[in-house]
Amino acid sequence: MKRLIRAAAAFALLGAASGVRSEESSAADPAVEKRVRALATELRCPVCQNLSVADSPSTMAVQMRSLIREEIEKGATEDQVRSFFVQKYGEWILLAPLKSGFNWLLWLGGPVLLLAGLVGIVFWVARRRRPIEDVPPVSAETAARIEKALKERLEDGA
């Protein structure tokens, strides 16, 4: 019984948003909706684990989305909305860290490794390169052997 009371108490969380202006968007401007959604995907829902404000079904996220909508309708730019949330919650709220200072390490790590790898491969191939010209012409006997080998290869697979 006590369990059920707890359950009922927690369920109030759901109905809670009833006090909230519903996110009625049938009349909303699709361009605004698109911007709201794009911004909401960049923000981390504070009460969830690794979900964005756009994806989370929590009341908090619903309220945040309506706040973003309001700000955009008032003419705020993306940067203004973003910095508003950063000011309140810290950089933590951004799902993609700002490209500045120490964070450049995050953004550049992958591309640097890829480039270094490409350079490495070029050198490795160059060092192991053997000109194809020094292969002697193939005799008739070898050609027959190759033909036979080829047949076997077809059986082998790969």
């Binding site: 995907t41 981390r44 690794n50 964005s52 951004l94 993609a96 860290p97």
Partner: peptide, 10 residues
């Protein structure tokens, strides 16, 4: 010393 999130957009 800063808490960051790295998620889907990154």
């Amino acid at each position: 010393g800063k808490k960051l999130s790295v998620g889907a957009p990154f």
